[in-house]
């Protein structure tokens, strides 16, 4: 078997340190009480952390195009689910129950 790409030890340590730092950042943002921005900010930090895990710990950065497309397809279907659900909820006509 040909040699696979081996991610250096240092890179793993840096990624882990970044993940810990971002976890602290999540809590700091929570303590700042950002109001309506709290949700999006927390989600954005989580997305950055998820990207780090995917690219380095799960080796997706050095994986072949096929596996990246497979992961991307999952993400697209998830976005479809979220998108159409959001459309459904936001376009509902509010009406009071007669019960």
């Amino acid at each position: 078997m040909s040699q696979h790409h081996v991610i250096p030890f240092k890179t793993y340590m840096k990624v882990a340190a970044a993940l810990v730092a971002l976890t602290f950042l999540t809590v700091i943002c929570h303590e700042l009480h950002l109001g309506p921005l709290a949700g999006p900010v927390a989600f954005l930090i989580a997305a950055v952390k998820a990207a780090l895990v995917l690219l380095y710990f799960m080796h997706l950065k050095y994986d072949n195009m096929q596996n990246r497309v497979i992961f991307g397809s999952g993400l697209i279907f998830l976005l479809l689910l979220i998108g159409f659900s959001a459309l459904d909820i936001w376009t509902r006509v509010q009406s009071m129950s007669t019960l």
């Binding site: 976890t23 999540t26 809590v27 929570h30 709290a38 949700g39 927390a42 989600f43 930090i45 989580a46 952390k49 998820a50 895990v53 995917l54």
Partner: peptide, 13 residues
């Protein structure tokens, strides 16, 4: 990765 999203969504937001 799933826990990374669960933590802020359930505990913080």
């Amino acid at each position: 990765l799933i826990w990374i999203f669960l933590f802020p969504l359930l505990y913080l937001v």
